[in-house]
Design a protein around this nucleic acid. Structure first.
Length: 567
RNA sequence: UGGGACGUCGCCAAGUGGUUAAGGCACGGGGUUUUGAUCCCCGCAUUCGUAGGUUCGAAUCCUACCGUCCCAGCCA
């Protein structure tokens, strides 16, 4: 298996941080356990899109196997036809690949239904499972509570032959949904509720998207998961903390059936991120209730959304690697993720200039009919990326924010009578402010100093500020979408009495229709990433066309001026 | 009130009886810069949830307490 993790610079520092899972696997390999093999699996349920939280699990599962020369299986945990849909399979595979990982084998828990059924029969034969006729409600009563032990079902001592017969008839479709279940016979008084005779099979007369109507009994997660791991020869079954309580059951099952593989389940803490939600249920609500524009809305923390937003997959991988792996629950500031994205994009995004909110400038001493072409670098620190040509003309646009009539002292940009450098060009002076009838600034008349053109000796003259610009006649109109955090509070689900929907940030999307970009950019394909100098990183949206360019802001640049201006 | 787990700098997180208690992000200060970006320096826990105890020596061992999370789906 080859992944991007093997790229030379994939993880800037050769030293990967140590964490308990990495240590544990290292020990296992060193001790020669499993003949030194490391085989993991990533087991999504096909009932929604993958999000940044899943990416952590993907990185750990694929990453560990990769690191120790092992392999990883992608396995769809499709044991519940009631909640799963065929359309998700393809999207999930696409997202895993997008992150740069490839699986050794593709499996489905449903591929093992026949074997699973066989193991269930074996448990019955050994007197370790029985068919129960308790209703869901009765079962809840019999189960006891957190502090009181449960009671044995009247069917607990059903004869083996009878259970076997009933289980066959369950499979044959002779009984209705909910009338019978198959339960493991473990310990109704166990302090761990998962061991109070957990359900192994339930009747669901619903067609399965892969097995059709061949089955009407379906195994539960607990029964199917560990056995599927064992069937595939998984060595390390890495999952999240909420399954810690299930490990005794995972082990019990594998200890009581005839299978010669016993993977080790190891649990790690999920990674939460502030100002967003990471649960399929909640994300689904955002989509179905129309609060966002689909699973791949760039504001969504789904991998599909982040991809459309312009997040590089490598940034996501480095982010999780930098966060580390532990067992303590954490909420990671969104800014950490954004910085990982900035680091990655700073390295390789070509530079461009774009004016989001145009203010026209007339260069009074620039010939009206002249276009001067400038050869400028695509990246200030990486010459090998080459150059681009941009046009400068008598009329240009600058950013409205880069001009102030009466600015505070620390303002380094343009003001009446002041000078500023036009990036990649020359120094201009603001000679005249032309106001509109309503008193607002209509445009500026400026003169430029030809001696200060980039490349000329006079270019060394220093002025306080440098601003970006685009030729009014050569620039192209574009729509730009500026995204902000989806929620206005750090932890939208903290308060159980308030619907998280109420915390949605009404300003999470701002669409600007009359931005002006360098014309070459309009022809770039969907997904193309650039840095608009002084503004941020942007990605060409899939809906963009050369006639109607559409760009999404991935993340802004760090802005220390914003901090100064605020205070 | 049962069981499982977790509490080390604002946020993550190394550390498993003897270290000046790593590192990253954030933050503060300085330098370079035709992006107030990037980059580069420097600073940033006498202290490890609390209280006792063991020890020549503890974040690391013991005891008690406090706090947070998960578990009573025929979900995963």
């Amino acid at each position: 298996m080859k992944t991007q993790g093997e790229d030379s610079s994939a993880f800037g520092t050769p030293e990967l941080r140590t964490h308990f899972i990495r240590n544990r696997i290292r020990e296992d390999v060193a001790a020669g356990r499993n003949d030194g093999r490391v085989i993991t699996r990533f087991p999504p349920e096909p009932n929604g899109f993958l999000h940044i939280g899943h990416a952590k699990s993907i990185c750990i599962n694929f990453g560990m196997a990769d690191e120790f020369g092992g392999s990883t299986n992608l396995r769809f945990d499709d044991t519940n036809p009631e909640r799963e849909e065929a359309l998700y399979y393809e999207r999930i595979m696409e997202d895993v690949r997008w992150l740069g990982f490839d699986w050794q084998a593709l499996h489905h828990a449903s591929d093992y239904f026949e074997q699973l059924y066989g193991f269930a029969c074996e448990l019955i034969e050994r007197g370790l499972a029985y068919v129960d006729s308790l209703s869901a409600e009765q079962m809840r009563e019999y189960r006891g509570t957190l502090t009181e032990p449960g009671r044995a079902s009247p069917d607990r001592d059903r004869a083996i032959a009878e259970s076997l017969e009933l289980f066959k008839r369950m499979r044959a479709g002779e009984f209705s949904d909910g009338s019978y279940t198959l339960r493991a016979k473990i310990d109704m008084s166990a302090a761990n509720i998962n061991l109070r005779d957990p359900i192994l099979y339930r009747i669901r007369k619903i067609p399965h998207h892969r097995t059709g109507d061949r089955w009407c009994v379906y195994p539960t997660y607990d029964f199917a998961h560990g056995i599927s791991d064992a069937i595939e020869g998984i060595t390390h079954s890495l999952c999240t903390l909420e399954f810690e309580d299930h490990r005794p059951l995972y082990d019990w099952l594998l200890d009581h059936i005839s299978i010669d593989c016993h993977p080790q389940q190891i649990e790690f803490a999920r990674g939460n991120i502030d100002f967003t939600v990471l649960s399929k249920r909640r994300l689904k609500r955002l989509v179905t209730e129309g609060h966002v524009d689909g699973w791949d809305d760039p504001r969504m923390p789904t991998l599909a959304g982040l991809r459309r937003r312009g997040y590089p997959p490598l940034a996501i991988r480095r982010f999780w690697e930098s966060v580390g792996v532990s067992k303590s629950e954490s909420i990671i500031p969104m800014i950490v993720l954004e910085n990982a994205v900035r680091d990655e994009l700073n390295e390789r995004a070509p530079r461009s200039m774009a004016v989001l909110r145009p203010l026209k400038i007339v260069l009074s001493n620039f010939p009206a009919d002249e276009t001067r072409w400038l050869e400028v670098p695509l990246h200030p620190q990486r010459e090998e990326m080459g150059t681009r040509r941009i046009a400068i003309t008598r009329e240009i646009y600058i950013e409205q924010d880069d001009f102030m009539l009466d600015p505070p002292g620390k303002f380094f940009r343009l003001k009446p009578g002041g000078e500023v450098r036009l990036r990649n060009a020359f120094i201009i002076r603001c000679d005249e402010v032309v106001t509109a009838a309503d008193g607002s600034v209509d445009h500026l008349v400026c003169s430029f100093d030809p001696d200060t053109m980039s490349g000329l000796p006079g270019a060394s003259r220093k002025v306080k500020g440098t601003i970006h610009w685009v030729s009014a006649s050569h620039g192209k109109r574009a729509t730009v979408r500026l995204y902000d955090r989806l929620f206005s509070v750090a932890n939208p689900t903290a308060d159980r009495d308030t619907d998280f929907i109420e915390h949605l940030n009404p300003q999470s999307l701002e669409t600007i229709d009359d931005a002006v970009i360098e014309p070459d950019l309009a022809a770039q394909p969907s997904g193309h990433q650039v840095q608009f100098e002084r503004t941020g990183y942007f990605a060409v949206d899939p809906d963009s066309t050369p006639e109607q360019p559409l760009l999404n802001r991935t993340v802004s640049l760090r802005d220390s001026w914003a901090k100064i201006a605020q205070s």
